[in-house]
Each structure stands twice: as C-alpha cells, then as structure tokens.
Amino acid sequence: MIKRFIARNAPGYIFLSPWLLGFFLLALGPILASLYLSFTKYDMVSDPRWVGFANYEYMFTRDRRFWKALEVTFTYVALAVPARLIMALSVAMLLDKGLRTIGLYRAIFYLPSLLGASIAIAILWRQLFEQNGVVNQVLAVFGIEGLAWITNPDTSLYTLVILAMWQFGSPMLIFLAGLRGIPRDLYEAAEIDGTPKWRQFTRITLPLLAPVIFFNLVLQTIESFKTFSSAFIISNGTGAPADSLLFFTVYLFNEAFKFFRMGYASALAWVLLLIIGAFTAIAFLTSKYWVHYENERD
C-alpha cells in the first residue's frame, strides 16, 4: 500500500520538492519561532522573556496605533482589491477582443505589475502625486489647483489605491486566460437570441468566469493585506502623514526593526495571518453560492 502510494504520488512530490524543502528548511522554523516569540518580550539583545498573552492583550486593549493600522489596511483592501480586479477584468476584456498585436499589449500592460513592487515605482509615484508633481501640473492646465495628495492625510491612501489599480497585470493575465476559456459559441448563441451586451456580460461572462474571479479575489486580498513596499516608500517608512499610511505591515516593520520590539511584532504578524486566514475562509465558505464549476459533480 505504501509502495503504491509512493508510485502514484512520487512524481508530484518530486516536482514539489524545491518548495517543500524551502518550506521545511527555511520557513517553518522562523514561523514556529515567531509564534513562540509572540508570547515573549524580546529586543534582540537580551534573551526572549515569556510574557504569556501580554502582547495580544496590549494590542487589543491599549494600542491605538494597532487599531489605526487595521483601519488603514482594511480601508485599503476594501478599495484596492475591487479597483484592481475591475481594472484587470476591463483590460482583459479589451484584449480578448482579439487584437493582432495582443502579445505586445499583454506585455506592455503586464509591465507595471513587474515593476510595481519595486522601489523605483513607489518613488516615481511619490513624485507624480507631490505638490509640484505631474498630476497637479496636468490639473493646472485645466485650471484646477491640485492638493498635496501624498502629504494630505485625507487623500494619501487613495493615491496608493490608484497605484494598486495600476498594477493589474497578473490578475489581468489570469482573467484573460479565463475569458479565452469561455466558448465563443455561447456568445454567438446569445447574439442570435438578441441578448444585449450588458446582459451577455452579467449572465454569461461573470458566472462562467466566477472560478477565476474567486481565485483572483483570494489572491489579491492576501496580496493587499500584505502591501508593504509602496506604503513604506511613500510614507518615508513612518506611516505618515498622520498615520494615514500606517499599513499593518509598516507598523509591524517599525515595531520590529525600528523599536526592536520583536515579541510584539511577532504577535502582530500572527494577528495579520489570522485575519488573512479568516478572509480566505469566508471567501471559500461563500464561494459555493456564487462560483459555478464546470466539472463539479452533484
């Protein structure tokens, strides 16, 4: 029986092995260590000191910045995920129209996503939305006096939402593949029946794309909860102005590497993990009501 299990599954595990090895040798240890550290006070100089649930207690009862970080992150996720998915789907649908140079466009549109996580783009973004940045110069042409988008706490988060929207490349490619998978003749049949384009979209495209939408939603939600580098660069690593860019990860980073409160930062990390886990679980639990799988067996 064991022999058969090995024979049947060995190729899969062999292909998985780089990740499995990476996980067990490089990730699992630190993960478990961080769980332990989250119950300690640890400043990286002296030994960790066991404090039980004190970190968690402080976090939920007394730490106002923790709640602020949650607020910023949740607002961002709530805006950036739908914005990016809508953008990605819109561009994918345009590309799906069968342009001759589709390969080129796909590459061009994917480019921001490749660059997106990089520091350079975040710096560029900051320059675009500065008081004297390109955005305000363009607005000035139309006689509109722009705000200091990034230094104004009311608008700073939205500049990051726009940056997120612009990095639609990877969900767009997945949507494009999904759209390509919907048989053309379903649309042709709908066309002959006089189905308006909007109804074709809502009654055919969306339901048949649901598994892909679901996949992208889960992936992008996780991604957005973890947003770090753009927020870190644009806020100069502080979450400023007025903590309006205090993303959870920025807060965590500061606690860990600025104030060397490793125990507390580990606790923050575990709370973030639980939040992401909870959202993913909710997505999976609700998926049976809105995701239709072609090969599902009843």
């Binding site: 003749d185 049949a189 066309e191 002959i192």
Partner: peptide, 10 residues
C-alpha cells in the same frame, strides 16, 4: 443576427 428572426443549433 438577432433581427433576422432565425435560430441556430450549434
């Protein structure tokens, strides 16, 4: 297509 009053079986 929709105005041609025809049906098609694929």
């Amino acid at each position: 297509a929709s105005k041609r009053e025809l049906s098609m079986v694929f």
